[in-house]
Nucleic acid binder design. Sequence first.
DNA 1: CTGAAAGCGCTAACAG
DNA 2: CTGTTAGCGCTTTCAG
Lengths: 336, 336
Amino acid sequence: MVTIADVAQKAGVSISTVSYVMSGKRAISQKTRDRVQVAIADLGFSPHAGARSLASRSSNVIGLQAPLRTGVDVHVIMQIVTGVVTQARTHGYDILLLTSEDASALDRAARGSQVDALLVMDVESDDPRIGALTDLPQPSVLIGLPAGADGIPCVDFDFEAAGKLAVERLAAQGHRRVALIGSPAEVLQRHTSYADRLVRGFLSACAEAGISGTVHPCPSGADASRIVDEVVAADPDLTGFLVHNEAALPYVTARLVAHGQRRAQALGIIALCPDNIAQAVPHPIDSIDVPAEEIGSTAADLLCTLLAGGEAPAVRLLEPHLTVRTGAAGVTGVTA
Amino acid sequence: MVTIADVAQKAGVSISTVSYVMSGKRAISQKTRDRVQVAIADLGFSPHAGARSLASRSSNVIGLQAPLRTGVDVHVIMQIVTGVVTQARTHGYDILLLTSEDASALDRAARGSQVDALLVMDVESDDPRIGALTDLPQPSVLIGLPAGADGIPCVDFDFEAAGKLAVERLAAQGHRRVALIGSPAEVLQRHTSYADRLVRGFLSACAEAGISGTVHPCPSGADASRIVDEVVAADPDLTGFLVHNEAALPYVTARLVAHGQRRAQALGIIALCPDNIAQAVPHPIDSIDVPAEEIGSTAADLLCTLLAGGEAPAVRLLEPHLTVRTGAAGVTGVTA
DNA sequence: CTGAAAGCGCTAACAG
DNA sequence: CTGTTAGCGCTTTCAG
């Protein structure tokens, strides 16, 4: 293994000079710097991460807790993770991946100084991990917006505003009875932050617009078709739909379009998911993009700002935007 | 921060005794051990990872390169990662997540002693990263089976055998012209290991069975329907299909069933993907499970064996199994 | 069975 | 602008 001492010797300087060339923390003459850099390159030196973290009291690693639970939208998780990793690297941080759901994993990584900071995904409205995080010396950021974040900065897509936006669009199209075809029951039952907020935005906007709104958990896969049948059977006057379940989306839209055709009804369907997923559906439907990668990169940026001693907003919500792919009346069942 | 010295003082023993209690590397009297453990618990001590890695010359971290490229099956990636992380933890290893595709990321992590070993996913048949890996002092394992692994152990699902198995089933059902509806074109173009091997197994088995076999790249999402139409139009006598593209699967099966119905033909359809994906499709179809989580856990196990000084097989392939959900004739178009 | 002490490779004062 | 050196917290000889 090649050490900083090897580099120093080869370059004919002291080891502190090598260290300062690498960190840029003090002025070095051009000549010396060049010689050191040549030596580093020649020897293929990279500093020992452990030694560095011991001496500098920072590891340049961020812990990312990404629980891979049932019912979550795997594309969204994946894109968030990509955003985090990519953005963190631009700030010189690597990512330690924690997948166990419990707070002890966070504790272990933090207490052992393995990480300089923590990023926690898939937060629930009342999440037990928040207490653990506030007890730690390292800063942290949540992806989600729990009830009591307790001073921990939160980053997420504004699902509440997305719910409102969808209802406003559907109401403007003339729909008076609308339904939210949402996440699987497990996700709603554990009060996953985003699911809760979407429901809240959806229902309050319905109340405000004076229209009827109902919420229906929906399993992923083909079982979604059955749910659609049940929902439509229970209330045949439903004409507006907000679908927030990427794995169920193809089945839900296909079934809804079929129902619309049968009744010669113009349906309003809005998908809430990453744009590429919405576009992969055969029928053109309106959609609200979930900018998953941007959520991840924003969270990573915020955490790096914190690590650099900067200030962070308590809450940072990414604004929803509607992409219209259908006419004013929505998906016209008869012509689809 | 609480250090090993704090623990030693509190327990009234020397630092080395505390260290040996933790590592179990030498005999300690029950009395002493108890006192030390109480002190550790009371103080909430966890050893500094950097200090530990500096002194012990090992970090207890495995680097996992999981490139999140376009066209990959995101469920499969996710499940492999889950398997790796979970299994590695049971051996006391954490996972550093690398997502950049290039060899330099591997180099950086390894040269800096950030990781004790490397696990590389999404390997291509002739992958430039293999050279980088063989130059490193740390052991590594590939998930995939490239042409020249150059002594690096490989773990994967046996896609070649899966291709054979599918063809044998279709041939046994009486199908004489079969098609592989495969990964997106990008994946095939970069000669991703698994895609190459599947094609090889599929075509050679067709030759052996004396039946006609063709391979068709397939985009994810609804565009898959168009591909199916083209494939069927180009060869109306096709009756057997192997589908290896989870994101396209619902569209492909729906379209194939529709074609089958129109012609009152009995089609053979076999899906190659994780079982839960195959089951989420409305029509019951035969399937060959891709045991993604097991691929990950097997690879992690193998790497940990290597790290423990054990021997590893050069290649470890997980055997395919067919799950039959249709009758001998396959999906009966007319009754579906 | 336990202690003392020599590093592991690096950073960051301190000294010039 | 550069060098010397005291730790950072732990593991592991070497001694007893």
